[in-house]
Design a protein around this nucleic acid. Structure first.
Lengths: 335, 335
DNA sequence: CTCACTCCCGTAAACGTTTACGGGAGTCGC
DNA sequence: GCGACTCCCGTAAACGTTTACGGGAGTGAG
């Protein structure tokens, strides 16, 4: 815990000025002998440059923040897992913020960008970019990349999933299997994913020529227990032959209830999850699930941010990641 | 992206010196009118103090690093999830490092502590604290808390799981159910968890009066596919009536293989996982699993570090977290 | 010998804070 | 009317770097 050596210490020991020390350590042209003396002194003292002082001078912290709702959610884990190596390879550290989906927390993170403890930010606002975000976003003192949608014309880089296409994939798959009474177990409608899945669901039904039946739709939350409750409520008043769940946790909850009710999956009810997490393959029967590309979204966001940090003033970019459908036993029978 | 205002800007606008600005902003006693002028100027300019400059002066970054092998691993996710709020409540940020279990990466993290970009470090070395860690650990320029074991007498705070007790819990449970040919599907023996589980297994067998049969032990890696391979190898040469798996992923792999072989769980083979992750309840049958308290270990580690950051020179503490056994369908039949 | 030029390197300023120190103005008591 | 004391506040140094600037020493040409 002792105070480490500084360039001043090295300068004294090597008998040169601190400017020379700095030059040597940064590889600027210097006389051979000076280089040797400085290097020797630095080695003997075990010198490590102070990142804080360097940051103050250079205005670069080589840190990037990632703010998301909950690091326990597999979607965000997948993102972090991809973001981290990209940043690391470019010499950046990752600062993690969990906001619990609290809008004030999110705003706080944006406001704190002014402290300049990071060079940039990747943020995934659970309840979307509200008016309150907008001013902070457009005037942010550091580059920001938003994962999720952003109002038209907001000047930030943006990576989005295509919920609509994902829901359509699922419904077409179920329709192709002959299912006609396809229910939806959704999360809260005031969240970005919840709202997106709701409208995508009605649209996809329409384009398949299926009627919209409100009895087949139930709203809960993005967790297993809430998913189970929602499933129970829905089953009490309707007989779906398929259920689309807004994420894999909800699907697990639904699976619990279906099992209790002695409804066979997929014979009686076909089940589709979303996000295609490892829970989908842990479940039994394994879960057909719509992958919304969390990993890829994370990676792309990190790349966008690094680009922005390097060149700076290009036009904001919007990247849309295509969904994929992983077909498994919960719709097609064979594990 | 404009350069933000500094205390100099504020001082100019308020017509006072930078010292007064600093005093006001830090709540030091100041004349009423000065306070008003400074506050007004700061508000109008939207001033946010520069964290880097502050750190340089105060020698405090209010950042803490957590280094672990892989953020995809549910064990570490559980830790991060607990560490984050503890740190946040105390005003610290979390810097995340994934080392991929690479010892050189771990050493690098330790070495970089000299850059003083964090005030402290929580590290969970996958392959244990080797001699090479020791010098760096004892001479670390910032407090370090190790999650996992540490050689006797190493002067660092330390939080450990009780693998031995966990394995004993599992074996006693299986023994109580009448199982006598209890196999072990382990991870690599040169990792801390792998080694601990191996010796704990032989010890527990001995204390139960069961013979040790090398045919019932197989080593793979801590992933599902490797777990499946190991299970297959073991089943080719032995007929266990129970399998203890070194983590839940391995157990899932084993479950896949048992299903293929048409062996019933738990009737033919009882199955126990470790770490008690959410995968255990996602699986079917649900998995009995030994919880090693990842969440609690994370929380305790964060608390130890904060204590150390506050008072400093107390004697190093060792905290051991007790294991728990979550009994589920894979050993007791009813889901 | 002097001038021009090159090559190194040291002095000092700067990044944005915090804080020790001392000075000026005011009050009070004698 | 002056010393002692208090209350504010400004000047300047410091944290550990990077870097602009300029000076000294050496070389070569004229």
């Amino acid at each position: 815990m002792a105070q480490g050596p500084t360039i001043t210490t090295i300068a004294a020991r090597a008998g040169v000025s601190i400017a020379s020390v700095s030059r040597v350590l940064n590889g600027l042209p210097t006389r051979e002998e000076t280089v040797r003396k400085v290097m020797a002194a630095a080695d003997e003292l075990g010198y490590v440059p102070n990142a804080v002082a360097r940051s103050l001078k250079s205005n670069r912290t080589y840190q990037v923040a990632f703010a998301m709702a909950d690091i326990g959610n597999p979607t965000y884990v997948a993102m972090v897992r991809e973001i981290q190596p990209v940043l690391k390879a470019a010499g950046y550290r990752l600062v993690l913020h969990s906001t619990d989906g609290d809008v004030d927390d999110e705003l706080d993170v944006l406001r704190r960008l002014g402290e300049r403890y990071v060079d940039g930010l990747i943020i995934s606002p659970l309840r979307g970019v509200a008016q309150r975000h907008l001013d902070l976003l457009t005037s942010a003192p550091a580059p920001v990349v938003v994962i999720g949608s952003v109002p038209e014309g907001t000047p930030v880089d943006n990576v989005r999933a295509d919920s609509r296409a994902g829901v359509r994939l699922a419904l077409e798959h179920l329709h192709g299997l002959g299912r006609r009474r396809i229910g939806l177990l959704n999360g809260p409608l005031d969240t970005v994913p919840g709202a997106a899945r709701a409208t995508a669901y009605t649209d996809a039904l329409a384009s398949l020529g299926l009627p919209y039946d409100p009895n087949l739709v139930e709203v809960g939350d993005f967790y297993r227990a809430e998913g189970a409750l929602a499933a129970r409520r829905l089953l009490e008043r309707a007989r779906p032959d398929a259920l689309l769940c807004a994420n894999d946790l909800i699907a697990l909850g639904a699976l619990d209830v279906l099992r209790e009710e002695r409804l066979r999956v997929p014979e009686d009810v076909a089940l589709v999850g979303m996000d295609d997490t490892e829970l989908a393959t842990a479940a039994w029967p394994t879960l057909t699930s719509v992958g919304l590309g969390s990993a890829e979204r994370g990676r792309r966001a990190a790349e966008l941010l690094l680009d922005r940090l390097n060149d700076g003033a290009a036009a904001p970019r919007i990247v849309t990641v295509e969904p994929t459908l992983a077909v498994r036993a919960s719709t097609e029978g064979a594990p």
